[in-house]
Design a protein around this nucleic acid. Structure first.
Lengths: 224, 224
DNA sequence: AAAAATATTTAGTTATAGCTAATAATATAT
DNA sequence: ATATATTATTAGCTATAACTAAATATTTTT
């Protein structure tokens, strides 16, 4: 079965289904409509089309999921996106909060050649600047260390920030002003009703749970 | 007057009108249809739309031309395209014949930030790998030395290849196999009915006029 | 088990940008 | 000046991917 030619819109649907599936158990039409900024009837129409192309399967009220072919395509786009994000940051001096938008547009138009060229140039990286894993050229997602959001880690342990689950400019800006960036070592000082108290480079902050749960860390004191 | 938001298709129309205007005196609907690979009625429709947006002017049977605003946009796209071509060649190891296609897709989606970043990185270049002038950031086309196609130069004079008027893969491949590339010094040995006899690096070739007229040169023996 | 709330689909519309077939306008050649 | 050829437009169609309003199906709550 050769690779079908898809519109950018269709690629976005596949990508979103993949990303939502990683989080939730099932992906509703509503979920998709929200993420893609379209109305539910548009989703019905497109999902129907993708079903006919054997890229997704859909059981009403139970969820949408990708077929093997659909997943391959989603991973391809995700690889483009994440390679591009890293490339923009490393080679074109983009800041953390600028890379997502640009990659979002470029991911659909770069050729295999372009993909290979930047991957090569960066020595086949496995993670992008947000800590998201970059699917390999043969579309396998690399293993990541065992991660959990700050909110689920034990008080007192030293953690390494390894992934940030947001692409929102304002949130990313806030996090980088607080120095809560990939690779930074932090310690949880306390978990209060108003938020989590952190020690970061000798400073202490209280950050709300809504922010804390976006920051995923590795526990340096837990052998695994 | 702020910059209108255009579709990629509309950008392509403006770009083609600009490029054709550089060559011909007037640009017919047919010319546009040919270059853009669409049928004449599609051109009528789109030109009408662009007229309404004050980006082009059209007198039937006399030609289409860009307004000032239209030209600004065309130059912007051309700048994207040519910067990208050079960038792909210099930083991602693309060969001469591969850059055009990729740039054709990327030119519509890169941001001002991306444009500025690669321009900066390459130290604000004035010409792309085909010798085409790159409009400056404020959209002025840089001066080029006085150029003419090989077919119009004098026999015996030493010439420097400065611009190649084709984006066709096969032609570019042929030219690079003959070492007829930007910067190469050549001498015209004779002008025959079958073609032009050239000396290139100790070798001599006879190249057909159809190819010779695509290769534009500067006459090193003529002071200007 | 019925009512209410939520989720999904259907029906019909819009905009963009192409297309073909046929017509009209202009330019060129006899 | 008339006929022919060329160029351009009109009318009407197609596909994609959105949309709204209304209807239907399912799940959840009471």
């Amino acid at each position: 079965m050769e690779k079908p030619i898809l519109s950018e819109s269709q690629e976005d649907y596949l990508k979103e289904i993949f990303k939502l599936r990683e989080l939730n158990l099932n992906v509703s039409m509503q979920d998709l409509a929200n993420k893609l900024n379209v109305k539910p009837p548009s989703v019905t129409g497109m999902v129907k089309k993708l079903c006919a192309m054997n890229l997704v399967e859909h059981e009403p009220y139970k969820g949408v999921q990708l077929t093997e072919t659909g997943e391959k395509i989603a991973l391809e786009i995700l690889r483009h996106h994440r390679l591009l994000e890293l490339y923009l940051a490393k080679h074109l001096n983009y800041s953390w909060d600028e890379i997502h938008e640009e990659a979002e547009r470029l991911e659909h138009v770069i050729s295999e050649k372009f993909e290979a060229a930047i991957a090569e140039l960066m020595d086949h990286p496995t993670h992008d600047p947000h800590g998201d894993p970059i699917p390999s050229a043969d579309l396998v997602i690399p293993d990541s260390p065992e991660l959990a959001p700050i909110t689920l880690h034990k008080t007192g342990h030293q953690l390494t920030i390894s992934r940030v689950m947001s692409q929102d400019k304002d949130i990313l800006n806030l996090l980088s002003r607080l120095e809560l960036i990939i690779g930074r070592k932090i310690t949880i000082k306390g978990n209060e009703s108003t938020g989590v108290r952190l020690k970061v480079n000798e400073n202490q902050y209280l950050i709300p749970h809504s922010i804390a749960k976006l920051v995923w860390c590795h526990d340096d004191e837990k052998a695994d």
